Computed example of a mutant assay.
Amino acid sequence: MLIPAAGLRSTKADINVNNKVKITLGSKEVLGFNDYQGIGFLIDGTARFISEGADLDMMKEKFPFANRVLEITVTASKQLL
């Protein structure tokens, strides 16, 4: 999972100490359990910031503000909604 990043200085400092992350995300555009509108996930993984290379170049095309990319390697995910 790649996330465009600008700023996030304290997050970068935290990841340098402990790269384990938990992220929740959701969308109301997708059906969830029992055909309810909306779905969410809890994602566990490890994170690192990328400040050069093809992934950053690709992300800057869509998000010109990005000066680095937060890469999350998913180790587990759970559907919440």
Rank of each mutant, 00 (worst) to 15 (best):
T46W: 00
L8K: 14
Q79Y: 05
V69R: 04
D57L: 06
T24M: 13
A6H: 14
G26E: 11
Q37D: 15
N18A: 12
L80W: 12
E29R: 15
D14A: 14
S10G: 06
V17F: 05
S10L: 13
K22W: 11
G26R: 05
D35N: 07
K62V: 08
M58N: 09
A47R: 02
N34A: 09
P64G: 09
D35G: 09
N19V: 01
T46S: 14
I39D: 02
S10M: 14
M1Q: 09
L25R: 13
E61V: 06
G40L: 07
N67A: 03
L8C: 12
G7V: 10
K12N: 13
Q79F: 07
V21D: 09
I43Q: 05
A13Y: 09
D55Q: 15
K20L: 05
T11K: 07
N19Q: 12
E61L: 11
L80Y: 02
S77W: 08
G53V: 08
E52M: 08
V21R: 05
I50T: 06
F63M: 10
D35K: 10
I50A: 05
I15H: 10
Q79W: 03
D14T: 02
T75S: 15
N18K: 14
K22H: 12
L56A: 02
T11Q: 11
A76P: 01
G45P: 04
I50K: 04
V30L: 14
K28A: 13
S27A: 07
N34L: 06
G38H: 07
Q79L: 06
N34T: 13
I50C: 01
T46R: 12
V21Q: 01
K28G: 09
T73P: 00
D44L: 04
N19C: 01
G38T: 01
N19I: 03
K60I: 04
Y36C: 11
V74K: 02
A6T: 14
I3V: 04
P64K: 04
S51K: 15
D35L: 05
G32D: 10
L8Y: 15
S77M: 11
T11F: 07
K12W: 14
F49H: 04
V30P: 02
T73H: 02
V30Y: 12
S51L: 06
G45E: 09
L8N: 15
T73S: 14
